[in-house]
């Protein structure tokens, strides 16, 4: 089902720089490839909050796909940093309720793992097209 959706309409990120923060290698690379598939330019993947913040400081970021629970804490500081820039963000998490981030950042879209990576890139593409 998920794959059906993703294969039918390929999203288009229009060369946007998409930050991927994910500590699980398989997922991270899947996301990177998904961004590439959607004509985006992946930034990352970052496996920690620290790496993510480094990337934000050194790269142009147009959108972001963020895992919530990382080895050095939750992704909150990353969200805060990106929030100021107003770029579209999706949270990709296995435990959407436990972090409390969705309360703090209600405008941020939350997708529960596992979600097909194309769904995430489509969401971002839509946001970017506005």
């Amino acid at each position: 089902m998920v794959h059906t959706v993703s294969s039918r309409t390929q999203p288009d990120l229009g060369s946007a720089h998409v930050l991927v923060v994910e500590d699980e290698p398989f997922i991270a690379y899947d996301l990177i490839l998904a961004v590439e598939d959607a004509h985006g330019l992946p930034v990352g993947p970052a496996a920690t909050v620290l790496e993510a913040l480094d990337l934000i400081g050194s790269h142009k970021i147009d959108a972001a796909i963020l895992d919530v629970t990382l080895s050095d804490g939750t992704v909150g500081p990353v969200l805060e940093a990106l929030e100021k820039t107003g770029v579209p963000i999706v949270l990709h998490t296995a435990t959407p309720q436990s972090s409390g981030l969705s309360d703090r950042f209600p405008q941020v879209a939350v997708y529960t793992k596992p979600t097909a990576v194309a769904v995430l890139t489509r969401h971002l593409a839509k946001q970017l097209q506005r």
């Binding site: 699980e24 290698p25 398989f26 997922i27 991270a28 690379y29 899947d30 996301l31 490839l33 998904a34 296995a94 435990t95 529960t112 793992k113 596992p114 097909a116 990576v117």
Partner: peptide, 13 residues
């Protein structure tokens, strides 16, 4: 969920 996500990523990769 993580394992499934990993598995999904693993399959895709």
């Amino acid at each position: 969920k993580n394992l499934f996500a990993v598995a999904v990523g693993m399959v895709a990769m």
